[in-house]
Design a protein around this nucleic acid. Sequence first.
DNA 1: TTTTAGTTTCAAAAAGTTTTGAAAGTTTAA
DNA 2: TTAAACTTTCAAAACTTTTTGAAACTAAAA
Lengths: 167, 167
Amino acid sequence: MNLEEAKYKFIQEWGVLGSTWGINRAMAQIHAYLMLSPESKTTDEVMEELKISRGNANMNMRALIDWGLVYKEYKPGERKEYFYAEKDLWNVMKQIAKERRKREIVPIREVLKEVSAAEIDNSPEGKEFKKVTKDIDSIISKFDGLIEMAAKSDQNWFLKVLTKLIK
Amino acid sequence: MNLEEAKYKFIQEWGVLGSTWGINRAMAQIHAYLMLSPESKTTDEVMEELKISRGNANMNMRALIDWGLVYKEYKPGERKEYFYAEKDLWNVMKQIAKERRKREIVPIREVLKEVSAAEIDNSPEGKEFKKVTKDIDSIISKFDGLIEMAAKSDQNWFLKVLTKLIK
DNA sequence: TTTTAGTTTCAAAAAGTTTTGAAAGTTTAA
DNA sequence: TTAAACTTTCAAAACTTTTTGAAACTAAAA
């Protein structure tokens, strides 16, 4: 296997992984392509490499910027926009965790808060409802705390803790 | 808000959450419905409550059994099958982590292993490729270790560690 | 054996998501 | 100005996933 084949393989697999995580294939592949590139790339290069349309490339690049995983750059004397990925994997993970927290954890916690204010009787159904929702809230709040903490913590603290934990 | 409304709200939101996680709405909703039920339920009850077809209910219930999140039960003198959910949230999370590990972590690690065996030159592209894939493998292997560890560890060990960590 | 009560399957339809490509918009240079 | 280089938008097309519903299947009861 040479570099081109290895790159291709990795980009494809990153696309598959993304799509099982609710991130569309093109977005995940652009992310992989830019992570692997030492130089920033133009929309045309992305289109050419991944065989996707201009609209698709543009939309997903903007989504990646929105997620804080890709940045724009201008080169002196050039009108084109250049794109490059966040390379520090710790930052990549922090960004993803922060975004997913905002999109997923916050809404479910809001619902849990709302339903916990409901007037619920002491029937078996009512008791079970209270128990299950309370348990879920307790676990989610722990994860939520962990993410908030990780977001604040420095570069490698979290990974060091993780390493110690599993050693 | 009464119990029925609260249940409805929670089931709907669990469906939304599931679908951003690559789990289809019906599957997530059936799971929520069964988690909230103190008694096991039949296919007809699930169909009625969630307003879905028999085929859909059957398919997704089997998928939930496959994921180890739902069990079947027979009641003496009855021909119908009854379904109930795993209620211990720790077990639920362990199961989900185990399944996702099998479906996602294992394949990407395999690809990372393959590409790390590729013959890659020392061009800037080659160097970047090696660096990025090595970094990713190192992080993924830590998570992988954590999941394996959690899978083996008892009931609340993990949550206790988590609690201590974020306190 | 035949009927009845249930479960499973799967092709087709519906719904949802992604992608395209061309037109509209924007910015810089001539 | 006007033209050229580039980016953005968005309706329609392509593709993917989910859902339906009826037929096939299975097992227990009559």
